[in-house]
Amino acid sequence: MKIFKSLRPAPLLILVIFVMTGCHHDQKQAEKLHVDLEKSAQIEQRLAKHQESLTQNSTKERKAYKTLLALQIDQNQDIHATIKKAQHYNEEQRRTLNDCDKIFNQGYSLATNAKPLIKDIKDSKQKEAGLKVLKLIEMRHQLYHTYSKEYRHVLDLNDKAYKRLSGESDIEVKKLEDNIKKINQAYKNLDNKKEQFNRYTTQYNQAKWAYYQKAGLQVKQVQN
């Protein structure tokens, strides 16, 4: 029994072993987390193509509007054809936006798998870094939905404008002009939201990087 009394430094040993096991546990968490977050990012990569399509169709719609404004009221057929074209590009944007929403939501739902994993992290610094990632996931999610809602608002306003323009000689200029002003204001709002979203995205990518580093994972950035 005396020998055990003499083994008083043993708790220190146990502590070291415990800490080492904890480190190992956090690293495992980080690896799991990495899988979900990067899968989410991979899904989001499809957004780029859709965003390009949104810009293209928005440009085409604006060009059709410009063509329309240059016509004369007696060019009936051209007016109708151009309005139809513009409405088509507007509808294309709506469809693409729906796809963007699906992609973003899919990515978000994968990213949110990280929640319980992060809560389970033992190391306080890693946990802090993980929580920052989590916070930015939520911020991006919220902002994306505000952006998407505003975009739909623009498309609704465009629809309204083209319906008004279909009225030809009965066009109420003041109402149409107010409509155009609202569209241009909504475009500004969209640009502001996009910029804010992109700032959050940069912060999110940096936060992910920082977290992986803290978790002792070797990270290599993949180009878009």
């Binding site: 990067e38 009221i73 200029v173 992910k208 950035q221």
Partner: peptide, 30 residues
């Protein structure tokens, strides 16, 4: 080495629409 795939930014861009009141079409309507 693990891969970090960056999350995507939004790239869509918009330009303002011209005023209808000042257009040829409106002029011809009036």
């Amino acid at each position: 080495t693990i891969a970090l795939i960056p999350a995507q930014p939004l790239s869509s861009s918009f330009k303002p629409k011209q005023s209808f009141a000042a257009s040829d079409l409106n002029h011809s309507i009036q």
